[in-house]
């Protein structure tokens, strides 16, 4: 597929964006096909939100081209925006209105007048129907997040972009939200998602782009990314508080359950590593050799790009 595929849901070609002396996006090019579930990953400050704001027309690229369903986001902004639903990263709301008023007004902005049947359906899917007449101010953070999702859907956009929709959201809502977004994807909507939870990206996204300092450093199918012959991951639980040797510390990270994960080239590197640890007098309580998950891949790609 060429970069200028006219049927692409999103076409981003050579996009640069500078804020003062900071190069927030540096010649970003990527294409998202219709119907894809696409992940945009990267550490904080990588430029994910900047890229989303450019496709939504909230900012303007210094150079490059962006099209949404074939419509240029500057020259054809009306059609581009009609085809795009964006759930912003920030938890924003208008305190003057109720949930229903908010959704009716948002429909009106998109030129839709009698949209209540669809609004009720969205409210129902997002478990918001009991809150329809409640003022936005009175909603919890999770509820406000759902209204943001609902607002992005009022005009039934074929392309939906969610910018860290599960940041600071409880597990139950996260699962409900993902089930809903998966359904939308099954019905044919193209989904683009940024998230901090890599296991979410791994289980949801068919394809992933990794961004670092404004540059795309990896762009591949999730399965291909996971199949990268990068390494073995050795997970260890250390005994006592003896520090790792410096060369090993460079490839180590702490896991959530208090273990140490080491990304190593191959089986020889694993046995060499264990020998080093033994020589350094580091005691081991537990050893596990695992298939790398997206987080390991992510970290190793970020390191390679450094």
């Amino acid at each position: 597929m060429s970069i200028s595929d006219p049927s692409a849901a999103l076409l981003i070609d050579g996009v640069c964006k500078r804020y003062g002396s900071l190069q927030a996006l540096d010649h970003v090019s990527l294409t998202v096909r219709q119907g894809e579930f696409f992940g945009l990953l990267g550490p904080n400050g990588a430029g994910k939100t900047t890229l989303i704001s450019l496709l939504a027309g909230l900012g303007r690229a210094d150079s490059g081209v962006i099209r949404v369903m074939g419509h240029d986001v500057v020259a054809g902004y009306r059609d581009a925006r009609r085809n795009l639903g964006v759930v912003p990263q920030e938890l924003v709301f208008d305190p003057f209105f109720t949930v229903r008023e908010t959704l009716r007004i948002q429909s009106g902005y998109f030129g839709l007048r009698r949209n209540d049947d669809w609004i009720d359906e969205i409210l129902h899917h997002l478990d918001l129907h009991t809150k329809a007449e409640v003022n936005m101010r009175a909603l919890s953070g999770g509820m406000k997040r759902r209204v943001l999702v609902a607002q992005a859907l009022v005009h039934r956009p074929p392309v939906i972009v969610l910018d860290e929709p599960t940041a600071g959201v409880d597990v139950e809502l996260r699962q409900g939200l993902w089930a809903f977004v998966r359904d939308l994807n099954r019905q044919g909507h193209t989904i683009v998602l940024t998230t901090h939870y890599l296991e979410e990206a791994e289980s949801l996204c068919g394809r992933i782009a990794m961004l670092k300092q404004g540059r795309v450093i990896a762009l591949d199918n999730t399965t291909s990314l996971l199949a990268r012959p990068i390494h073995q991951t050795l997970r260890l639980r250390l005994r006592g508080d003896i520090a790792l040797p410096a060369d090993l510390r460079a490839v180590a990270r702490a896991t959530a359950d208090g273990r140490v994960a080491l990304a190593l080239e191959n089986a020889d590197a694993v046995s060499a590593c264990l020998a080093r640890l033994h020589a350094a007098g580091v005691g081991l309580e537990e050893i596990e050799l695992v298939r790398p998950d997206l987080e390991d891949i992510f970290i190793s790609i970020m390191r390679e790009a450094a």
Binding site: A56, R81, R82, P88, V92, F93, D94, Q106, Y109
Partner: peptide
Amino acid sequence: QSKVTGNIVFVLLAPIS
């Protein structure tokens, strides 16, 4: 108010000239 609270984004996302 819309700028400070950020909800101006809802207008800016829409196809409004």
